[in-house]
């Protein structure tokens, strides 16, 4: 699949989901368990993404490098209730500096 195909398919699927909410009856997503799973879905995916982006290296091996240190800084900033941009920039700066001094 080319990058353009991926981009456009993701866009089409995202729009279809948004539009579906205006077209389908609300009863489709009612029910305690179903709504709990749906509410937890972003949590699971985001936690998975954080993991893969932080400690998974080439070929799927687990590595601790500048990215892990950057995430630690990001979590620290989140605990301090820092703004989204500050968190992202702080992580990038950490990884960039560590690499500049030759680590990770």
């Amino acid at each position: 699949m080319t990058t353009w195909t991926t981009v456009l398919l993701a866009c089409a699927a995202a729009y279809a989901l948004k539009l579906a909410g205006y077209l389908v009856p609300a009863t489709w997503v009612e029910g305690e368990r179903r709504s709990r799973v749906i509410a937890l879905l972003p949590v699971a995916l985001l936690a998975g993404l954080v993991t893969v982006q932080t400690v998974v290296g080439d070929g799927g091996s687990l590595v601790l490098d500048a990215r892990a240190a950057a995430l630690a800084v990001a979590v620290g900033l989140l605990l301090l209730r820092a703004n989204f941009l500050v968190v992202v920039a702080g992580a990038a700066l950490t990884a960039g500096l560590l690499r500049a001094v030759g680590w990770g």
Partner: peptide, 20 residues
């Protein structure tokens, strides 16, 4: 990679996860 932008992706996901 020089500017650590690849590491910033994990931070972005963490910031999205945090309030949840």
């Amino acid at each position: 990679r020089t500017y650590g932008l690849d590491a910033a992706a994990a931070a972005a996901f963490a910031a999205l996860l945090w309030p949840r």
